[in-house]
Amino acid sequence: MTVTSLVLLGLAALLIGFAKTAIGGVGSIAVAVFALVLPTKESTAAILLLLLVGDVVAVWHYRHHADRALLARLIPAVLPGLALGAVVLARVDDQTLRRAIGGLLLVLAVLQLVLARAPVPRRLGSSRAAAVATGAAAGLATMTANAAGPVMTLYLVAQGVEKRRFLGTSALFFFGVNLCKLPFSAGLGLFAGETVWRTVLLAPVVLLGAWVGLHTARRLSQARFDQAVLAATVVSALALVVR
């Protein structure tokens, strides 16, 4: 692996930590970087382990702000989405998967922009159908592309969730989802020795990013938060689609 590749992975690890404790959309850039530097399927496993490192920090820091009642409506639909994502990973070739990741992120970014311009009525976000659709879409998106952040953003914004409640609920949700993804990824043989060692080397960088994110979140307004999520998603999606 070249020095440039190592630097890019280090920056991506920093963004993973930052995304977990501040601006979730920035994590989409890390997903794009890993998919550009590594074979796409290998990148999904490598980034999963680093996401779990950031999850632990985020859950611990925001544990008192998570909305468990809201999560209870989402969780039943997540496992079918994860199972479908595992099937896709097993059958789709590397280049197709990379483009699918980019297309998925771009579609979700457009949905976020539509939501920002014409807010979805709260009753839609509160319906059981919306919760089931969000859970299933999040499971599929996170299994295939580690890209369920924008899905959750749409749902939580439609709920009118305040920033710290947003961060706490997202942290607990993704920690549980990422733990569920471990056996799927292991069953597909994605955790090679090199992937594990790469995680060990990059984990301290994730922790540094999480620390920076915690300090940034305290100063970040809701409007800036939404703008940053959208910008990060668009940039990362375009990077994958045009490659």
Score class of each variant (00 low, 15 high):
208 L>T: 14
173 F>K: 05
222 Q>V: 14
177 V>Q: 13
155 Y>D: 02
234 V>I: 15
152 M>F: 13
193 G>Q: 02
234 V>C: 10
213 G>S: 00
194 E>V: 04
234 V>R: 12
224 R>E: 10
175 F>Q: 09
160 G>A: 11
141 A>E: 08
145 A>Q: 08
148 A>N: 11
179 L>I: 15
227 Q>L: 15
228 A>I: 11
205 V>S: 09
149 G>Y: 09
157 V>E: 02
227 Q>A: 15
228 A>Y: 13
193 G>D: 02
213 G>I: 06
212 V>G: 02
200 V>Q: 03
218 R>D: 04
210 A>K: 05
230 L>M: 14
168 G>V: 08
186 A>H: 06
185 S>R: 12
144 T>G: 03
240 L>S: 09
191 F>A: 02
145 A>V: 01
177 V>M: 15
155 Y>Q: 11
175 F>G: 13
140 L>D: 09
166 F>W: 04
162 E>N: 06
167 L>W: 00
206 V>D: 08
207 L>D: 08
160 G>C: 10
227 Q>D: 14
181 K>N: 11
230 L>K: 12
192 A>P: 02
199 T>A: 12
164 R>P: 00
232 A>T: 07
146 N>C: 05
147 A>L: 01
232 A>K: 00
229 V>T: 09
225 F>P: 08
170 S>I: 07
169 T>P: 09
218 R>E: 08
166 F>D: 02
144 T>H: 02
153 T>P: 00
188 L>S: 07
153 T>N: 15
200 V>S: 11
154 L>D: 04
171 A>F: 02
240 L>T: 09
169 T>S: 11
186 A>N: 01
151 V>C: 08
159 Q>W: 12
169 T>V: 06
183 P>G: 12
230 L>C: 10
141 A>Q: 08
217 A>V: 10
237 A>H: 05
161 V>L: 15
219 R>V: 01
197 W>T: 04
171 A>R: 10
211 W>E: 04
154 L>H: 01
226 D>M: 12
231 A>H: 10
159 Q>F: 07
158 A>L: 06
218 R>Q: 13
143 M>H: 09
158 A>E: 01
156 L>E: 04
205 V>A: 06
142 T>Q: 15
225 F>N: 00
165 R>D: 12
239 A>Q: 05
154 L>M: 08
158 A>S: 12
202 L>Y: 04
150 P>F: 12
172 L>G: 03
182 L>Q: 07
189 G>W: 05
195 T>L: 07
166 F>L: 05
182 L>K: 06
184 F>V: 03
221 S>N: 02
167 L>F: 02
175 F>M: 14
208 L>Q: 04
